[in-house]
């Protein structure tokens, strides 16, 4: 089959496998909050984050994960009002871009192609070839707004015949997991948080804080995220690259030995061949869904990302997570 036929076939399979009977409609509303975070060195950095709409807008970094089933319809509404933190024109307002969803232009959230910046509803119905990790983020003056923290995970999940989410990454039972956690990678240059408009600050990125899912995790003793799993179980991690530098992901044990894991998706599509590796480069905008099996004896492993310079791949810093079993 050529590319064109493959696409048609995939859509046909999707329609057969996921009829409308169990398709859900998910209506969510987001607002934008300004929050101050105290970083590990005691400095305070202002972030703009997506929070649940309604009343006074509050939220945390990153925005809450959004889960949608294959065949479901997501209606994601962004509310903007006089209280919404924003820049002056021409970079006023905000949008939501469903990164990787390949939606129609009117749902794509790009101001330069006509998206309103004063609030809108974005609709996405994942097709049958879409699985795993996507992201949502603001697409206004992204050199600043991404950096400000306007992002979150968007997860597309397979469903069973009754419409319930399956605990597997794709339609393949080989991707079944017992535990799942999101590792959202991002970096912070405080200068970008105070600069605004057409500033030369945005030509030179000097990240100072290195995050996983909104926290620093500078050592294995103080991980950014942690998960309590059991021995001999399958743990899925959703790797989402919202950083603006390079990065290499690994899983290491307490002695520093690298552990194998298997990537089943890249950029929200099943990989033609699952890749079992001990390290994975994750660049800006990329996603992977991976699974590893915990060992038979109790202990802890440390999923981690080494953030790297774009020029020579030299390490800036490593951020750590932790999985106990």
């Amino acid at each position: 089959m050529n590319f064109n036929d493959t696409k048609k076939f995939a859509v046909a399979v999707a329609l057969l496998a996921f009829g409308t009977a169990n398709a859900a409609t998910i209506n969510l509303s987001k607002c934008v909050a300004s929050i101050n975070k105290t970083m590990s060195d005691g400095a305070s950095v202002t972030f703009w984050v997506f929070g649940p709409a309604g009343g006074m807008c509050t939220g945390a970094l990153p925005g809450a994960p959004i889960e949608v089933g294959v065949g479901d319809t997501l209606n994601l509404t962004l509310n903007i009002n006089g209280m919404t933190p924003q820049e002056a024109a021409p970079y006023n307002g905000h949008t939501i871009h469903l990164h990787g969803a390949d939606v129609a232009t009117a749902e794509d959230g790009v101001p330069e192609t006509g998206a309103p910046v004063t609030g809108d509803t974005y609709t996405f119905t994942p097709a049958g070839n879409m699985y795993g990790s996507y992201m949502y983020h603001c697409h206004v003056h992204t050199v600043k707004h991404l950096e400000m923290g306007m992002y979150g995970a968007l997860i597309v999940r397979p469903k069973d015949a009754s419409g319930n989410f399956l605990n597997q990454i794709t339609a393949s039972a080989a991707t079944t997991y017992d535990y799942v956690q999101t590792y959202l990678f991002s970096t912070v240059d405080p200068a970008y948080h105070t600069a605004t408009g057409d500033s030369t600050v945005f030509a030179d990125y000097n990240p100072k804080y290195f995050l996983i899912t909104g926290a620093e995790g500078k050592t294995t003793a103080a991980p950014a995220v942690s998960l309590a799993a059991a021995v001999n179980k399958k743990v899925a991690l959703r790797l989402i690259g919202l950083h603006s530098v390079g990065g290499t992901f690994e899983i290491r044990d307490a002695a520093g030995a690298a552990k194998t894991f298997t990537a089943y998706t890249e950029d929200g599509r099943a990989l033609p061949t699952a890749q079992t590796v001990t390290s994975l480069d994750v660049s800006a905008g990329q996603r992977f869904d991976i699974i590893f099996t915990t060992p038979a004896t109790t202990g802890a492993w440390y999923p981690q990302i080494s953030y790297k310079k774009l020029r020579d791949g030299a390490a800036y810093a490593t951020a750590y997570g932790k999985v106990t079993f």
Binding site: T142, V143, L146, A203, G241, S283
Partner: peptide
Amino acid sequence: NHIAQMET
């Protein structure tokens, strides 16, 4: 480019 400073 999704490395945001490279869109300037």
